[in-house]
């Protein structure tokens, strides 16, 4: 079983985490075209590689972003949204 680093609670077994899908930056809803919005809502990149993903540490309710290589299942880093620069 994998281990995952929660930015708040440290290294915990994967059974404590819930996958929250790929992290994507929302386009400005006031400015973007319908097409750009539909792309944001519906299209996911299925090709394996390094991805930003939402993960929830369920017991503590901590949502964070993990950068993971979905081909090798290697987690490169994890951080709270907005705290990336501070890393």
């Amino acid at each position: 079983m994998k281990l995952l680093d929660c930015p708040i609670n440290g290294t915990r077994p994967i059974s404590e985490f819930v996958f929250g899908g790929e992290f994507r930056t929302m386009p400005d809803p006031g400015q973007c075209s319908d097409k750009a919005w539909a792309d944001y809502v519906y299209n996911r990149n299925g090709a394996p590689g390094v991805k930003m993903e939402w993960w929830l540490h369920s017991p503590s309710g901590t949502w964070f972003i993990a950068e993971r290589n979905t081909l090798t299942d290697e987690v490169l880093r994890s951080f709270l949204p907005g705290k990336e620069v501070a890393e």
């Binding site: 819930v18 949502w63 964070f64 907005g82």
Partner: peptide, 13 residues
């Protein structure tokens, strides 16, 4: 629903 609230709060701060 509670999880989604937590997630959006993480974004909106």
């Amino acid at each position: 629903v509670f999880r989604e609230m937590q997630r959006w709060q993480q974004i909106w701060q």
